[in-house]
Design a binder for these strands. Structure first.
Lengths: 144, 144
DNA sequence: CGGTGTTATGTAATAATATGACATCAAGCA
DNA sequence: TGCTTGATGTCATATTATTACATAACACCG
C-alpha cells in the first residue's frame, strides 16, 4: 500500500474507530464537518464551513462551533489560533503537541508532531494544551 | 538596585530608547497604550484598552489596533493568540521566541524566552514569526 | 514663506468571529 | 409510557477586527 496519501474515507473510518474507542459519538453532522476539513486539506474558517454545510445559509453559527469543539476535544481537529481557523488532524498525537508551519503567502499548512519540546515549564504549572505555530513562507513561495 | 521589579517608567524609557534606535516613533498615543499594558502586567483585550484610553467611549477601534500593531512590530508587545489579547514585552527577545504559560484559572501569564527550540522546519521554509503558548493551571491554582 | 509628501490619528460604518439562551428532537431506559 | 440525556435547531447578541475615507502634524524642498 505504500505510505501514499490516505483517502478521506479511510481517514473518516479511522475517526469512527477512534471515537468508538473513546466512547464518543461521531454523529453525521460532526462527521460531515470533519469530511469538509479533510477535503480542504488546509485550515478552514468556521463561517466557510457553515456555508459549505448548508449552502442555502440555513445553518446557524452554534452548529459549526459545536461540531468544531467536539472535533478538537476528540483530537480530530486543531484550531489554528493565529488564523482563527480549523484543520483536520489525521494522526493522533498522543501527548505530543502539533507543530504547524503556515505559509502566509499561499496559505498551506504543514503539520508535524513536536517531539519532546524542551521543558521550561514553571514549577508546578500543569499544561493542558499547547500551541506551536510558525508563520512565514514555504519553500515554493520563498523562491517566487 | 537588585534585579527586583523594574518600574513602569523605566520600562517606558527603555522602549523610547529602543524605538529611537530603530528609527521608530513612539508617539504619545502608542506610549500610553504601552503604559496601560505595562500597568496591567498581564494580557489585556483590545476593547478594554480602548475603554481605558478614553473612558468616555470616544475612541474608535482602529485607534487601538493601530497602536497594538505598532507595538507588536516594534517588539514591545505580544499578541496572545489564543486569548485574543495583548501584553507588554519588556525584554527584547532577539530572535528567540516568546514562550507563554497561561493560567486558565487566574489568567496570569508567565513569559520566558524559548531558547533553541529544536528545529523541525521543513526544507526551505522561512519563519517570520512563531507562537508558543501553553494553557493550563499555574502552581497556585493547581493546589487550590 | 508656501506647497507637497509622508506618517499618524480621528471617525463612521461594517465585517468577521463567537457565544448564550432556550426550544426541539431522538435514543435509551426505568 | 414517561423521563433523562445528549445532540441539534434557532434566534439573538456579544466580541473582535477591518475598510475606507477625512483630518492633522510635521518635515522637506522650492
Amino acid at each position: 500500500m505504500g505510505h501514499a496519501h490516505t483517502s478521506t474515507e479511510t481517514k473518516l473510518a479511522k475517526a469512527d474507530a477512534l471515537c468508538a474507542d473513546k466512547g464518543l459519538s461521531l454523529t453525521p453532522l460532526r462527521k460531515r464537518v470533519l469530511e469538509l476539513l479533510l477535503e480542504s486539506g488546509g485550515p478552514v474558517k468556521a463561517y466557510d464551513l457553515l456555508a459549505a454545510l448548508k449552502p442555502d445559509g440555513s445553518a446557524q453559527p452554534p452548529t459549526i462551533y459545536r461540531a468544531l469543539d467536539f472535533l478538537t476535544q476528540a483530537g480530530l481537529a486543531h484550531r489554528v489560533e493565529a488564523l482563527n481557523a480549523y484543520m483536520a488532524c489525521v494522526h493522533g498525537h498522543g501527548d505530543e503537541i502539533a507543530e504547524l508551519f503556515i505559509c502566509e503567502n499561499c496559505g498551506t499548512v504543514r503539520e508535524q508532531h513536536a517531539p519532546a519540546l524542551p521543558d521550561h515549564t514553571p514549577e508546578g504549572f500543569q499544561i493542558s494544551r499547547s500551541v506551536l505555530e510558525h508563520y512565514g513562507r514555504c519553500a515554493q513561495c520563498s523562491n517566487a
